[in-house]
């Protein structure tokens, strides 16, 4: 059966059901590949730095979106510690189902970078406040595969 599967008979007015049978395969890209290689092999976070704009991007990018400079020669690792800029407590998953236990997500600006990285937070809820320091916890080397989840969470 091709793109459309039919599931119901029609009356004069009705609806016709189908789907778009898509999957996506994304490459990490030139900068992304370096970021994930360093994350997997060394358990560290790689950034890119634009001198002209005085801006540090984490994850690393291959160009500065502000001035269009080539940043490929500027990659270096950043501290795994940073400042929590904002946080949220999620009660639903991305399909809208209620989670058994809520999940906390935070926007973290790592020391030495200018951008925020979004990731899972494991901080006691009563201690959550913007401006507090958090630290990245990485999975053990043997479990790292080159995914953003190689960074397990911030605590």
């Amino acid at each position: 059966m091709p793109a459309t599967k039919t599931r119901q008979a029609l009356k004069v007015w009705g609806s016709w059901k189908g789907e778009l049978p898509l999957q996506n395969l994304y490459t990490a890209g030139i900068a992304g590949n370096e970021f994930f290689r360093v994350l997997k092999e060394r358990g560290e976070l790689l950034g890119a730095f634009c001198q002209q704009c005085e801006y540090g991007y984490v994850p690393a990018r291959s160009f500065c979106e502000r001035c269009f400079a080539d940043l490929s020669g500027t990659f270096k690792t950043v501290s795994s510690e940073g400042v929590l800029l904002a946080w949220t407590q999620c009660h639903r998953d991305r399909t809208g189902k209620t989670l058994k236990k809520p999940v906390w997500l935070g926007a973290v600006r790592l020391q030495g970078s200018s951008s925020a990285l979004i990731h899972i937070l494991k901080v006691p809820p009563q201690e959550l406040h913007a401006g507090r320091f958090v630290r990245a916890i990485f999975k053990p080397a043997a479990q790292r595969v080159g995914s953003i989840l190689d960074l397990s969470h911030f605590e």
């Binding site: 091709p2 793109a3 459309t4 016709w16 999957q23 996506n24 395969l25 994304y26």
Partner: peptide
Amino acid sequence: MSSCQPHPQGAFNSIFDHTTERPLGPN
């Protein structure tokens, strides 16, 4: 287009009318 798997035609197919054409299995 390489991001689109297994073949970009999966996206192209949706230019056909969903009710009067796609049931015929067009590409």
